[in-house]
Computed example of a mutant assay.
Amino acid sequence: MPLALNYTEGVLTEEAGRLAGKKITDAFLKWHGLAGNAVMTPNVTMQIQALPHGGALSGGEPVKGAWLECKTPSFALADRDIQVGFFKEATDIIADAAEGRLPREKIWSNLVHTVDGTWNLDGEAMTNQQLSERLAKG
């Protein structure tokens, strides 16, 4: 499940970005009851990218910020308590990593659910049912 953390240069250090990515990955697994799951753990990936100054806009104007995007099957992050808990924890992680350089209102996040049958593990497109069965083995 690819997660992506983008932030404008200077908001996080490179090391802080990596550490935040690790903590967000761990939080994602925890909130889904999958911490340590042998199937899911290596399949929650994180892309981390620093954007150049002027490389992000808010209201059409340059902005310093951070963005977390999660792409998951439709059954992940579907429960409201998990949504609220995970995105709050992820925002806290990013805010802490920024060490005061980024106000919470400049941290945005979202979720994109994939179409059933398009999730790919080990080169195989899987339905939600197939993916759930694979996860149960982990």
Rank of each mutant, 00 (worst) to 15 (best):
M1G: 03
P2T: 04
P2D: 03
L3Q: 13
L5N: 08
L5E: 06
L5M: 09
N6K: 13
Y7P: 04
T8P: 07
T8K: 03
E9M: 05
V11C: 09
V11D: 06
L12F: 09
L12D: 05
L12K: 11
T13R: 05
E14L: 13
E15V: 13
A16P: 06
A20W: 02
G21I: 06
G21V: 09
G21Q: 09
K22R: 14
K23A: 11
K23M: 02
K23S: 05
I24G: 06
I24N: 06
I24L: 04
T25N: 15
T25P: 01
T25L: 11
A27V: 08
A27H: 06
F28P: 03
L29H: 11
W31K: 02
G33E: 10
G33V: 07
A35N: 12
A35P: 03
G36A: 12
A38D: 12
V39F: 14
M40H: 02
T41N: 12
T41Y: 10
P42A: 12
P42Y: 14
P42C: 11
M46C: 10
Q47P: 00
Q47H: 07
I48N: 12
I48F: 08
L51C: 10
P52E: 14
P52Y: 11
H53A: 15
H53V: 15
H53Y: 11
A56V: 03
A56F: 07
A56R: 01
A56D: 03
L57R: 04
L57F: 08
L57S: 06
S58V: 10
G59W: 04
G59A: 07
E61C: 09
K64P: 01
G65N: 13
W67K: 04
L68Q: 04
E69F: 04
E69W: 07
T72L: 04
P73F: 00
S74C: 01
A76Q: 01
A78P: 00
A78E: 07
D79P: 00
D79R: 12
D79A: 10
R80K: 10
I82A: 03
I82S: 01
V84T: 10
V84P: 00
G85C: 12
F87H: 11
K88L: 13
E89K: 13
I94M: 06
I94S: 07
I94N: 03
I94C: 04
A97E: 03
A97S: 09
A97M: 05
A98E: 08
E99D: 14
R101T: 07
P103K: 08
K106C: 12
I107N: 11
N110C: 10
N110Q: 07
L111H: 03
L111V: 15
T114N: 02
T114C: 02
V115M: 05
V115H: 05
D116E: 02
T118D: 13
W119R: 00
L121V: 15
D122F: 12
T127I: 00
T127N: 00
S132L: 11
S132D: 03
L135I: 13
A136N: 04
K137W: 01
